[in-house]
């Protein structure tokens, strides 16, 4: 089934071809069938907001297809991007489980399919399906590990250059792991948004990209960044 945004919609979770690859969705058939009964599927355009920081949580969202950015505003009114969520992630999970307001705003970076579960239905489902609640605990625990890593990066990175190098290496990690000769990443963020991720200014990010190119650490072509010297980028983290 095709949607207005050119997405191939997967309407039935029980027959989803990527279900087993995803941490939360890889559940026994009876649990997935129960999940299917309580979800509502929607498609959204790029730029749509799923929820807003401070809004009372009303439920959890599975990002079936697409990417989203999670951001908050600092007390000085700066936008701070917390992370980029990929397809398969459950969004709003922490707030729904803790019964607290959403702690971030979620904006879609591309057209997306999203499955929504109301808080009441979702909590009842988890209370009845032990394996699903284990998957939720595992997903939250992985988010904890990511958050500690973020603290290491923020608290112990000396410069914006180091933070940018760390971010590029993180995004390129799958390609590096697979031993790709040309480590390429496609940026879905603007320089302004990258600045909001590393706690810097747009001007600094643009200057750093120029500097990295001049030192032949990277090359760029449109939105594609090729990491030319991964060891040198890694060395920046160890200084």
């Amino acid at each position: 089934m095709r949607s207005p945004y050119g997405l191939e919609i997967i309407d039935n979770c029980t027959t989803c071809p990527v279900r087993e690859d995803r941490l939360f969705c890889n559940l026994p058939v009876e649990s997935i069938a129960a999940l299917q009964r309580i979800k509502s599927t929607s498609t959204y355009p790029k730029g749509a907001l799923l929820f807003v920081e401070g809004q009372e949580s009303r439920g959890a969202f599975i990002l079936c297809k697409g990417k989203a950015k999670l951001y908050t505003s600092s007390s000085e009114g700066r936008t701070i991007i917390l992370r980029i969520a990929e397809a398969g992630e459950v969004l709003g999970l922490t707030s729904t489980i803790a019964n607290r307001p959403y702690e971030a705003t979620v904006e879609l970076l591309e057209p997306a399919q999203v499955n929504f579960f109301s808080k009441t239905d979702f909590l009842r489902f988890l209370a009845e399906h032990g394996e699903a609640s284990m998957h939720v605990a595992q997903q939250l625990s992985l988010n904890c590990s990511g958050a500690y890593e973020e603290i290491r990066c923020l608290g112990l990175s000396a410069s914006s250059g180091e933070k940018l190098a760390r971010m590029l290496l993180k995004w390129a990690a799958p390609a590096i792991r697979h031993g790709a000769k040309d480590v390429r990443i496609t940026l879905s963020l603007t320089h302004e948004e990258i600045a909001q991720m590393i706690g810097s200014s747009r001007e600094t990010v643009t200057r750093l990209f120029s500097e990295f190119r001049r030192k032949q650490l990277i090359s760029t072509k449109g939105s594609t960044v090729i990491l030319r010297d991964v060891p040198a980028l890694r060395a920046m983290l160890e200084q």
């Binding site: 489980i97 803790a98 607290r100 988890l126 939250l140 958050a147």
Partner: peptide
Amino acid sequence: LPQAGLAVSQFIAHDLRSTY
């Protein structure tokens, strides 16, 4: 028990919020 997984998830969620 399934409720145990949910209770532990709630604990981790609160911990995660303070980490954020």
